[in-house]
Design a protein around this nucleic acid. Structure first.
Lengths: 215, 215
DNA sequence: TTTAAAAAGGGGAAATATCCCCTTTTTTAA
DNA sequence: TTAAAAAAGGGGATATTTCCCCTTTTTAAA
């Protein structure tokens, strides 16, 4: 008989975690060492026990110490243990935080048991299991960082704003725009007002944030 | 005998693609339908042939039509075919473009054959295979934390630079840093010199470009 | 065609930023 | 322990930015 892979389940919903326990215990390859109710219990567990599981099946929303904190703790203190997140929510922010904390995979609780089994095997064998879902979420959050609130600027103001994001002085900007320096003053003051800026630096920060200028 | 999974290899390096052909053909589960030299040949192939492979092993850098364009074309025209990218480079930009174009995985050419075999099986069975490498790249590009700083800045200079990217005056920056305004002058001038800037705007542009400050 | 709004221009002044060439203090390395 | 380097501070001048309160010119709409 081959050695089974030790797993700890951390989840505060007892009904669910016990069901999960039964499920995983039925997988030939895995052995559930213990079932804990939150991150704190996991940390306490390691202060008492010498045994280390290969994988922790981690819920995210939990009282006292949540899954993100617990995963971060494991990364810092037991980096060889792999965390597979198991969550109800698939919102971008949670996924991001969990992955940054070091999770090796992120599954939703409504998956088919066979997928869980497959994921566990992958995490054991390859060290990770990132689903299409997770990857797409990451791709999305790169794309729609933030939609511009789009204060509407006139063409000439936009032109000035772009030039303000260079090392040109206002005098030089005036030359480029074929305007008097005094008129450029007006554009500056108008944009200070519209964009809530107090200095030229503020204009630059706004322009870059809103992707009016691209670096 | 089970049905083998059909694969097309697209790569302009003939020596490599032929070696890859031999390798994959030796895998029990897979059958290499044909080997093509670039994306254009792949598009042409589908205009002549009715047969469709399940998976395309796609190089990225190729003449005439590169792997990104070809993958995008497949997504638009043959969405049921899965693309597994196989590349020399692991730079962020390329990975992002390839995934956006619809690749179901991204492997480097220096992996072990068994990993390729495993990835192919995963792509066939699950529809995707995203490695830790790829996921970390995505995470990084969200964080914008890739430190490509060519010029090494001292801690205190970095601190000043970040403050320069705000609407604070130098006098206020001096207060925050517990320095005399004159010392702040020195930091400014030192950075002008190091970063080739002539004005504070130049500092801000540099800091943002190099991801020293995140907006 | 009249009228209002937008764009352009300006005077003048105070606050900041830029610049160059110094000294003193603290840290680091030989 | 001593020399050198880095960090901190400064004087003083000029240039630029910021600010407020104006006029003139051009454009667009009634």
């Amino acid at each position: 008989m081959m050695n089974k892979i030790d797993i700890i389940i951390v989840d505060d919903h007892v009904l669910f975690s016990q069901a999960l326990n039964g499920l995983v215990s039925n997988f030939d390859e895995f052995n559930v060492v213990t079932v804990l109710n939150n991150g704190k219990e996991l940390v306490d567990y390691f202060s008492k026990e010498n045994k280390q599981p290969q994988i922790v099946l981690m819920d995210i929303k939990m009282p006292i110490m949540n899954g993100i904190e617990a995963t971060q703790w494991l990364k810092d203190n037991k980096p060889e243990i792999k965390v597979l997140a198991l969550s109800m929510e698939a919102d971008e922010d949670t996924i991001l935080k969990m992955l940054r904390a070091g999770a090796k995979g992120y599954l939703l609780k409504d998956i088919h048991p066979s997928v869980l089994q497959h994921a566990l095997k992958e995490v054991d064998a390859s060290g990770f299991y990132y689903t299409e879902n997770v990857t797409n979420t990451l791709l999305n959050s790169i794309n729609h960082k933030q939609k511009s609130i789009a204060i509407k600027l006139k063409d000439r103001e936009l032109e000035f704003l772009k030039l303000a994001c260079t090392e040109r002085t206002y005098r030089e900007i005036a030359e480029v725009m074929f305007l008097s320096p005094k008129t450029v003053d007006n554009y500056r003051e108008a944009l200070f007002e519209k964009l809530g800026a107090k200095t030229r630096i503020g204009l630059v920060l706004y322009a870059i944030k809103e992707k009016i200028v691209v670096l």
